[in-house]
Design a protein around this nucleic acid. Sequence first.
DNA 1: GTTCAAAAATGAACGCGTTCAATAAAGGCG
DNA 2: CGCCTTTATTGAACGCGTTCATTTTTGAAC
Lengths: 232, 232
Amino acid sequence: MVERDTREHARREPASDDATAAPRGRPGRREKNKEDKLRRIKDVARELFVSKGFDDTTIRQIATRADVGLGTVFIYAATKRDLLFLIANEGLDEVASTAAASVDPEAALIDNLLGVFGPHYAFFARQPELSRLVLREMAFYDSGAQAGSFQKTREALIELLGTIVRHAAERREIATDEAPQFVGWTIFCIYQVELRRWLSDGTIDLESGLDRLRRALMLLIRGLGSGSGTTR
Amino acid sequence: MVERDTREHARREPASDDATAAPRGRPGRREKNKEDKLRRIKDVARELFVSKGFDDTTIRQIATRADVGLGTVFIYAATKRDLLFLIANEGLDEVASTAAASVDPEAALIDNLLGVFGPHYAFFARQPELSRLVLREMAFYDSGAQAGSFQKTREALIELLGTIVRHAAERREIATDEAPQFVGWTIFCIYQVELRRWLSDGTIDLESGLDRLRRALMLLIRGLGSGSGTTR
DNA sequence: GTTCAAAAATGAACGCGTTCAATAAAGGCG
DNA sequence: CGCCTTTATTGAACGCGTTCATTTTTGAAC
């Protein structure tokens, strides 16, 4: 309990009122407001999750390195899983927005789809370890505030896919009885499992991953009825 | 280790002539060989997982009710998750075999696919709680003997789907550039996520579940190019 | 500056899954 | 049977995620 005071604890200065005596960490723990703590917890957690893995990182380690109490971590994340989503949600929302903005109602269906999935793949490729963890923990996880946010983003994606399909139908690029929403869902199914497979097999190559996804999506668009894409 | 003999110990007595003065559970433990223990552990675990849920069931409870030591459970299942797969694999192999046997090279593609997926859906519907647990724990789980067996079964299914597609291609029901294996994989993607969705939404109705799966698969077979299924 | 109620932070304590050194049982041999 | 080797079984011990009664900090009112 004493030997871990080698941490950066040097913040207990009362600071008095002399101007020069405290160039580093000035007042005590006061300046560390909630945002500061959240920031520190997130940063430490991300670093440890990536470097040591999710299971081998303990919340005690995170708390110590973030210079907060053990219980404090649970104020910001209901569970360890939720802590993972807290990190994963950073950037993912932005990716989703970017993807949504890139949709062009006049563009070809496959281009719009890859315009949406491309940024997602790139995002996951940027932090493959974390992504694998997220996709591993994602399935069926529905408790915890951050997990909720994660699922909201996912549902928005499905709806976006439906919208893209609707555009293609309105332009008469495609014509199907099924509701655009349902087609969007089916596309999402393919995306989900393909993404998981891609992240699972060792080398995460963005180009080949997206290429395989394109092949699968083209299969759905063209159907199995005719070969070569050109209707022979 | 004596006071928990309030269990249902009424197992077979070893031998009649040995009715010595040791009525307190001593001789009973001898006849319990490995198979017996495995059987008891499985049965108890299944019952508790279904009745109380996976997370609320403790291995200590399982060990006590199965009348084995705590550590003994870990001889038969490397982890708690593996214990779940130990149970799930019972019957699933059989379902997979049944499904494989039902394939008719001359039958329509969609019929063969539903002939394979139907028994699977029925199996999952038979024990919905357990199925949800399995699908929750399944993603990315690759350590543990039972999980390995589970994934083998899964890969066999994907290959079976490829074979079904190949049959359809050989009969000229379909014609596509893509390798049958890849088409089978894409079908598997749809099946996976659809199955998960079906098990997630409260009421698990077999017929409506399979109907929705059929719609999604027909989408893939027909493609998005033409409406109504009948080519105009 | 003092007071005080509300909010935030904390770490001891709890029950869990998992490990493993110790123990018991089984089996082979003379 | 006794003796020894091998195998199976066990539960105390460990470190973990999580809880929550307690303590500390905060900021408004005086």
